[in-house]
Design a protein around this nucleic acid. Structure first.
Lengths: 334, 334
DNA sequence: TTACGCTGATTAAACGATTACTCACCTGCC
DNA sequence: GGCAGGTGAGTAATCGTTTAATCAGCGTAA
């Protein structure tokens, strides 16, 4: 049984109020009593119990994290960063998965409120808008979404990717997305389009339309693929490799989000990383400010960082890919 | 402001006890009063507040999940499964990351207790042993670890991998691990060793010793690589591919854990999947039984499942890899 | 001497929900 | 008519913590 305030008080022959005053440093307590209490507290290993405190103060020290899909490979880094940021503010993190379902999302938020969460960090389902919350909330979404509080500069990330390729001499690219309806992916591709120089061209290909023939795209002159996620970049990279093309000599590949595997493949995947620690601490800080009674702060856009690895390189002027022999072996069906 | 029991009671002119009785179905209440209360409850959208209930009943409806490393790519599937299993039992999930540090692990558990968690699911840091917990706990570790409650049959998974390759005609393999100190990896490799037929051989290679030259291994006759994680299998696969070898024609590759990318690369990665929903629901059920006062149930070993994809195939008898031309291009430094 | 101020600590209420206990009332039976 | 028994609902205590209000004791100044 964990020791209670009452146990400390009883053993010392003082009242619980005095003990509480020592712990909070608020009331008037003599130095001697203070010493005795502190001694007994560490002797018994007392830690104030959450429920009692939460009931009295209305603060639980817990914040909710509602995600559309925990199994998203970007999530580990995100959850870790949020957990670290919350822990450093003395908060715990309650997670919930909405499975991309708006009603499950509402449900999850209700449960967090019910469990006494002081605030919520939410990455909304596609297309849903969070509003009318009876508690502090921080929304992490695309910059273009109304209500967004913190996010990466996806548009800027797209620009950085294209600029990197332009410097390497690439003029014919493929932009690879998964779903047209994803705001984040759209923002990234918009950024890519915006950075194209006048003499450069790009085709946009969506995986939701089916797996493209990457080798054929290369044969038609594309020298680079920018995918909106490392996951799709990896698909492109392995498809190219197993079709006998080499990366980056024949085709350069860039991804997004610097997922766990990106540094551990051959060649290493050049990628645009989100600054997760920064996003997480901004989100938590955003929440803390609201809890302190401040008005909802302005949205915060965190820049993305280009991590150059082996999957991007200069265009080889000598032997254009389309003149090379068509590869014999290959397996394009993953 | 969320409605309280008192609000419902006041609006109906009854006592809070009556309202509580209706909600819990415990006391004696007339059908008429029951109807009125239920009506008002759904009208005001009342949901019992956690802290008050937790304080009174000693149950918070929250369980803690303590992990050694949230950024582990296996974690999303795991957290999702645990969250789903917990939610279906009406529980919330509080996460914490011990960063592989035993003292942080103890700390995290203390915080969960303090926050009123009813139980803890813990994946312990390497080498730590969890004991003397003042609350229900379920430990997920390797089967060989004392105190383990639920885990995958890593040894059996290793056996399945080797048996699959033996059937395909492979007799010279490479077993690829990351760290010798990982119990899970050791169990998997032990299983592999145990399944080798008398005419088959395998080298064990550890990534902690540095990145091996996979093409050289193939040239020396190895026709298959089994990695203890898809992450390492992916490293092997891309190294082989960028060295000009083809998978599975030259070398077959198997991984473990069926990570998010494994089905989305070319060729698709054959892998041994953990049955996450089963493990999670076993873990949560294990916890619930303890909460219900039952003694700690026996450990549960969940079988792993072989998912055959394109990265494994029969040994090509016609042209042994070592007689093929050595590839010209390649980038073995990821 | 009385009043006042200060110190150090106690008392008691409150937070929201649960629950054992009590109570008033009604029905039916002897 | 009185009493047992059942019904429907209220009273009040409780969980652990915080905190406003109070209080006793003491020294000092009027």
């Amino acid at each position: 049984m964990q020791p209670k305030l009452k146990d400390i008080a009883r053993e010392l022959g003082v009242s619980t109020a005095t003990v509480s005053n020592v712990l909070s440093g608020k009331g008037r307590v003599s130095d001697e009593t203070r010493r005795l209490v502190n001694e007994k507290v560490s002797e018994l290993g007392y830690r104030p119990g959450g429920p009692g405190r939460a009931l009295r103060t209305g603060r639980s020290g817990v914040l909710g994290l509602v995600l559309p899909d925990i199994s998203n490979p970007l999530f580990p880094a995100f959850a870790q960063a949020i957990e670290a940021a919350a822990a450093s503010s003395g908060f715990g993190v309650l997670i919930a998965d909405s499975h991309g379902d708006p009603s499950a999302q509402t449900d999850a938020m209700q449960r967090m409120i019910q469990r006494g969460a002081d605030g919520i960090v939410i990455v909304p389902c596609r297309g849903t808008q969070v509003s009318d919350l009876p508690l502090a909330a921080t929304i992490i979404d695309a910059a273009s979404t109304p209500g967004n509080c913190v996010c990466s500069d996806h548009h800027g990330g797209g620009r950085l990717a294209v600029e990197h390729l332009l410097e390497l001499g690439h003029r014919k690219m493929v932009f690879l997305g998964q779903s047209r309806r994803s705001t984040v992916q759209s923002d990234r591709i918009d950024g890519m389009q915006a950075a194209l120089s006048v003499d450069a061209r790009a085709d946009v290909v969506w995986l939701e339309d089916g797996l493209p023939d990457f080798a054929a795209l290369a044969r038609r002159g594309a020298t680079a693929v920018i995918a909106t996620s490392d996951l799709h970049a990896l698909t492109a990279l392995t498809c190219l490799q197993s079709a006998g093309l080499t990366v980056p000599e024949d085709v350069s590949v860039i991804g997004f989000d610097d997922l766990s595997f990106s540094a551990r493949i051959a060649p290493g995947l050049t990628t645009l990383a989100q600054d997760m620690p920064e996003i997480a601490s901004a989100a938590v800080a955003h929440l803390m400010q609201q809890l302190d009674g401040a008005p909802v702060p302005a949205a915060r856009i965190v820049p993305m960082a280009l991590r150059i690895r082996g999957s991007t390189g200069p265009v080889l002027k000598t032997i254009p890919p389309q003149d090379r022999p068509i590869p014999q072996q290959g397996d394009l069906t993953p």
